[in-house]
Every structure is written in C-alpha cells, then in structure tokens.
Amino acid sequence: MHISEGILSPEILLAGAAGTAIGVTMGLRSLKNGDIPKVALLTSAFFVASLIHVPIGPSSSHLVLNGLMGIILGWEAFPAIFVGLALQAILFQFGGLTTLGINTFNMAAPAIVAHYLARPFLKQGGLGPVGLLACAVAGGGSIMLSALLVSLSLALSGEGLEAVGRLIFIVHIPVAIIEALIATFTISFLLRIRPDMIIPGWTD
C-alpha cells in the first residue's frame, strides 16, 4: 500500500516526512541497543511475510501486516516500517526516497493505534473473547486507517486524484477482513507457543 514517486504534491510529501521523522525518533528513543538485532530480524520476518499472497475469492492480495507489527513492536514499528519500505525501494523500486516519509507515516501511524488498542488485552493465559475482538479490530482497522490516509494523501495532492484515492479505499475493504483474521490467529498462536515474544517479563 504505497504511493509511487512523482504523484503527490510537495506539501504532502513534506508533511509525511515530518510526521515520520517524529515517529522514527520516538521509536529509536525506546529502542535499546541490545534489542536492535531482535527488531531488525522481526522487520525482515515481516518483510518476508508480506510477500505471502492470500487468495480472496477469484483474486489475491499480499499481506500488509502493519497492525500486527504495531501490536508486537509498539513505537519501534515506526523505524521498522521505515526500514522495510527503504528496503522495498532499493530492492524492488516500490516507492523511493521522496515518498519514504509519507508512505511510512501512512502505514506506521495506524500501527501505533493498533498497539494501544490491542496491547492491554495481551496477558498471561491467552486471549479472552474481548482480546480476540481487540486484535481483530486492530488488525483490520489499521488497514482501513492506512487506506484512508493513502486516499487523503492522493485527494489533497490533486482534484483528479480523489477518484483514484476512493478506489484504493474500496479495494482495501476485503484486505482488511483478511488482515483482521490473520492478526488474531497469529497473536493467539504466539501467545500459545511463544508468549515470551510478546509479553515482556514472561515466566513459565
């Protein structure tokens, strides 16, 4: 869900870069030196996982997983998504240097929202019904929020791009449903198999 180079207006690009600078700074501040390999390898794991294509009816879509990243990484999701998008720009030429700011912001800001939404429910002993619901809302909602931010970025960049933005928003509704399921299943899987990964200070 990223916007290519040369489409958005300079004002939007600048606003996105400013938002991302704040988010990345917050993320780096909470990131301890010893945790860098951990966050980095989770970033590469998310990068690889986002290459998975899931079938949706006759079509298919790749996973975005920004909600899940937010739930697991918290504010560190900002630098993680920034690095993931930078790698995509270098390796696949999806996006580039000038859109790195706005694209990171559009994906990472909803991830932070997902974090605060679902985190309080991840406790020892697995997810309750409320926890399952919170994870689903966080996983699906972050996709819809990202789609909304992408549509807004397009609409604010040119009158003619508003329709493109609206189309992008509609296309992401089924993706959000799938992401809600994936986020919920993944979190409950990790809580059962490896709770130490998501609950700090976990003891057996």
């Binding site: 996982a49 919920t184 899987f189």
Partner: peptide, 11 residues
C-alpha cells in the same frame, strides 16, 4: 497463513 507468519516471526 497466520501460523506461517507466526513461525517466521519465531524464527
């Protein structure tokens, strides 16, 4: 697929 994502994260 969700379990596959989980496995990748664990690895």
């Amino acid at each position: 697929y969700a379990y596959l994502v989980g496995i990748l994260l664990i690895k």
